[in-house]
């Protein structure tokens, strides 16, 4: 739209505005109009984000239970917080979460960066393969959880047959999601399958942002490919890799859907990550006050860790 067309459009809009509305708008300052435009978003944010957060904080200091609507709600101070932080079962859940977060991030970062490095080579058909690699992350976690649960079935699942084909083991001699030793790795594997493409995508953006002339200068200086990788590629892509780690770290700390569908925290409580414990407390045991306190602890933990990490990320970026 050129300037003349724009002016005519504004003029037409102004003349089409009903006189009473036009009078009110004319009386408003620019700041007021700006507030008018952003207020729906702010109201929405307050209603679905801030209000529940404040309410959760308030509930965390009470004995409220959602299944006892007629019971008296008492203020119990920090009892829930004390009870959570001294509960060995909660610490076991935190350990399971830490195991899951650590291994998924480590494997996904290595694989994601390697894939990005390969795709960045711009070989024939690289666009097609990039799209193929991205498919898992486009699927719904509910779909992924369900079909991997089928793949892992020891009697009919394809996964056991593939392993059996390569190792000669009896397919029904091991259970991925029913075994205490294998179940945590079964979840790590599915999450890695699903989210490595996401890490790859971010790393690819990092690799593509490195100017070509730096490599040309390195070539002139006769730097080997190995040297170019360690002194140019990796340091320049590092802020992007760190960003991917941050996103995946936050997401996996809160991981619920895949674990719920694959193992539901089992066998026993082997894969009971913090979010599964939270769900059990809130919606199976109906300890609303207790689960609110637990949710606050999880929120503060992830918020604190993310803040420390962002500071580190900023340091790397400013180098």
């Amino acid at each position: 739209m050129n300037d003349v067309a724009k002016a005519s459009f504004i003029e037409r809009a102004a003349t089409a505005t009903p006189a009473p509305v036009a009078r009110v708008v004319k009386g408003l300052s620019d700041r007021a109009i700006a507030w008018l435009f952003i207020s729906p978003t702010i109201i929405l944010l307050l209603a679905i984000n801030i209000f529940p957060l404040v309410w959760t904080i308030q509930l965390s200091f009470t004995n409220y239970r959602a299944n006892r609507p007629n019971a008296e709600v008492k203020n119990i101070g920090i009892d829930h917080f004390q009870s959570i932080l001294t509960d060995p079962d909660v610490w076991a859940a935190m350990q399971a979460t830490a195991h899951f977060v650590f291994w998924t991030i480590l494997i996904q970062t290595i694989l994601g960066f390697a894939l990005a490095y390969l795709v960045d080579r711009r070989f024939r058909g690289h666009g097609f393969w990039t799209t193929v690699i991205l498919i898992p992350m486009m699927l719904s976690p509910a779909v992924v959880g369900n079909f991997w649960a089928f793949l892992y079935q020891p009697q009919i699942g394809l996964f056991n047959y593939v392993i059996s084909f390569f190792t000669g083991l009896d397919p029904s001699s091991f259970e991925m999601i029913g075994s205490v030793k294998l179940a945590p790795w079964a979840i790590v594997l599915v999450d890695t399958w699903m989210w490595t493409p996401y890490v790859m995508l971010i790393c690819l953006a990092g690799l593509r942002s490195i100017p070509e002339y730096i490599y040309e200068a390195a070539e002139v200086d006769r730097a080997s490919k190995w040297r170019q990788f360690w002194t140019i590629t990796l340091p320049m892509a590092l802020p992007f890799i760190m960003l991917a780690v941050l996103f995946r770290g936050i997401e996996n700390f809160k991981m619920f859907d895949l674990v719920n569908l694959l193992t539901n925290g089992g066998p026993g409580s082997t894969t009971e990550v913090a979010s599964i414990t939270l769900k059990r407390e809130a919606f199976e045991k109906w300890r609303t006050g207790y689960s609110s306190a637990f949710a606050i602890i999880l929120f503060v933990t992830v918020f604190g860790l993310a803040n420390i990490y962002v500071k580190a990320l900023n340091k790397v970026k400013s180098r």
């Binding site: 079935q153 020891p154 259970e175 029913g178 539901n264 089992g266 066998p267």
Partner: peptide, 13 residues
């Protein structure tokens, strides 16, 4: 012991 000895494979849940 009954669970360990005599259930079908993958019968953990």
């Amino acid at each position: 012991s009954l669970y360990k000895c005599c259930t079908p494979p993958g019968y953990t849940n």
